[in-house]
């Protein structure tokens, strides 16, 4: 679906991504994990054709978009939720409808899709709320609804549950799973290793702008790189904590 070939990104004389080769296969869910500052966000921006790599090529469905209009056409088939999503001016409805209006869909169709997307993310009845007054977690969900409403072929999610409480995180994870079930290709970046294990068919670990390892979740656990194992084990420890906390909240309810 999306292929990065020898992609490097340099900003202000710093190498943020170095010779990245990644293929996102149609229908798969690819997890991108890595410590903070590793370049996950930059990577997703490259995949969304917003960030122009200083080196290398990005192929969308086997072809590298040559000009702005080809990029736009590709981008219109990609849904993305940024790490700290911004709300556009106006209501929740306006935000979810934005992508549909610029694609010139009919009013009825827009209405239908906005309703469906909002109910998918558990925000029924939020249509008329001013989007910028929402809480961080609500904005995150509006951003997801906004991306889903355009029925993208591929969904890029940058730490989609980082701002959410465990309960809402699971709602979102379910949503991602069901999008995946419907055949949507998903790329999800996360700090949260267990989440990557739960959702992803394949995981790419990046550190310091490089792909240090990739493969199925199980395969990675047996990696012979100390760096990778250390990172994964730290992640699994946190996972145990989370399980514990989750258990506690379940009992107390």
């Amino acid at each position: 679906m999306i292929q990065l070939e020898d992609v490097s990104v340099e900003r202000n004389g710093r190498q943020i991504l170095k010779d990245i080769n990644i293929e996102v296969r149609t229908g798969e869910t690819l997890g991108i994990i890595g410590p903070t500052g590793a370049g996950k966000t930059t990577l997703l921006r490259v995949m969304d054709l917003i960030e122009v790599p200083s080196k290398g090529r990005v192929l969308f469905r086997g072809e590298a978009p040559k000009n702005e209009s080809e990029k736009l056409a590709a981008r219109r088939r990609i849904g993305v939720v940024f790490q700290r999503p911004l709300m556009l001016r106006g209501t929740v409805y306006d935000n979810v409808a934005y992508g549909l209006r610029i694609r010139r869909l009919s009013k009825d169709e827009i209405d239908k899709r906005v309703k469906a997307a909002l109910s998918d993310v558990g925000l029924e009845g939020y249509e008329r709320r001013p989007a910028r007054m929402l809480s961080g977690g609500e904005m995150q969900r509006v951003a997801l609804a906004r991306a889903l409403a355009i029925s993208p072929e591929i969904l890029l999610l940058d730490e989609p549950t980082a701002n959410l409480d465990p309960r809402t995180s699971y709602v979102i994870e379910d949503l991602i799973s069901s999008a995946k079930m419907r055949g949507m290709t998903v790329v999800i970046s996360t700090h949260d290793l267990p989440q990557a294990v739960r959702l992803a068919d394949r995981i790419v670990i990046i550190m310091d702008g490089r792909v240090v390892s990739s493969g199925s979740p199980d395969l990675l656990m047996g990696s012979d790189s100390d760096e990778v194992r250390e990172f994964l084990h730290a992640g699994m420890l946190r996972h145990l904590d989370r399980r514990f906390i989750h258990e506690l909240t379940r009992i107390s309810h």
């Binding site: 969304d48 917003i50 219109r76 940024f82 911004l86 934005y98 992508g99 610029i102 906004r146």
Partner: peptide, 11 residues
């Protein structure tokens, strides 16, 4: 970021 949001939504 706001401009990027519009672009990413297909503007």
């Amino acid at each position: 970021d706001l401009r990027d949001t519009a672009i990413s939504l297909g503007a």
